[in-house]
Amino acid sequence: MSRKLASWDTAIILLTVLVLIIASLAVDNFGTSRNFTFMVLDLLPIILVALPMTFIIVTGEIDLSVASTLGLTSSLMGWFWNHGLSIETIIPLCIVIGAVAGAFNGFLITGLGLPSLAVTIGTLALYRGLALVVLGDSAVADFPFNYTGWVTGTLSWLPWLDGAVPNVLILIVVLALIFGVILHATPIGRSLYAIGANAQAAHFAGIRVARTKFWLYVVSGAVAGLVGVLWTLRYSSARADNGAGLELAVVAAVLLGGVSIFGGKGSLPGVLAGVVLLTALQNALRLEDVSGQALNIVTGALLVLSVLLPNVISSIRGNWQRRKLRQSAAS
C-alpha cells in the first residue's frame, strides 16, 4: 500500500511531463523561449518558498506566514533604499530579517508549544500589518537596473541557448539541489520524516525534535526574505502587499506533489513537479485566454484531486486486501 502511495510523486512527475508536452504541441507560444522565461519567473517565488515548506510539512507542521514575511521584507527593502542604504547591504539584511521573523514563529511553536497553524495564521496577519506600517500603500520603484535586470534577464554566456535560460533558473536549480540532497540523503532528512511520522519515537531515538523544527522555521523565514528581495527586484517595486496569497499556492503545490499534510511522507521531486504542473497549467490556460476565475477552478480542482486520489486508491486497495484475507481465512 505504501509503495503505491509513494508512487504518487512518480505519477505527478509523469503527469507534469505529459502536460508540458501537450501544452507545447497544442498551445501557441507555449514552447517559445520568451514564454519559458516568463514561466520560470512565475515559478520562482512558489518553488523557492516550497522548498523549506516541504521540510516543515514533512515534520507535520505548517508555515502560513511566508507570504507576509515576503511582503515585510519587500517593504523594508523599499524603506532601507529610501533611507540611503546600499543594495549590497539591503539584500543580506532582508534575508536576516526574514530569518528573524521565522525564528519568532519557531520560538512560539517549539518554545511555547503552540500549534503551528494558529501561530502562523497569527503572524501572517502580524507581518503583513508591519509591512503596511513600514511602507503604507506607497511603492518604491527606483532600484538599480543591474539588479532588477539580473532577475529578469537570461544567461548571456550561453549563446547557443539563444537567451532562453533565465538567470534565476540557476538559483532555483542550486537551491533545489541543496534542499533535495538534505531531505533525501542526509541524517537531517531522515530525522524530518521520523519527526513527522512519530515525534515521540524520534525523541526516544535521540533526535532533537524541537530544535530541528525551530531551525526549519528560521530557514523558511530566510528563504521568504530572499524571495521578498527577488520579487521586489523582478517587478522593480517594493510594496507592502507583494506576494499576498502566495502561501496558499505554495501549500497547494506541496500537497499536489504528494507530501502528506499529516507529516512523514513526501519527496522533493514530487513537490517540484507539483509546482511546475500548477504553473505550467495556469500559463497554458492563460495563453488560451481562459479567464482568471476558470484558472482558480482548475487549481482548486487539482488540489482536491491530489488529496482525494491517494486516499481513494489506498481504500480500494485496503478493501481488496481485506477481501483476499477473508477468502484465504475461509478456505
Partner: peptide
C-alpha cells in the same frame, strides 16, 4: 508502537535512525 518504532518508515530507516549521523560520509547517506 509509540516510542520504539516509526511504524510508517521502512525497517532499514528504523534500524539506522539513532545512528544515521555515524553512517553518513561527508554528511551524506549513500
Amino acid at each position: 508502537r509509540q516510542q520504539g518504532l516509526v511504524m510508517e518508515l521502512s525497517i532499514e530507516r528504523n534500524v539506522t535512525l539513532p545512528r544515521a549521523r555515524k553512517l553518513a560520509r561527508l554528511g551524506l547517506l549513500f
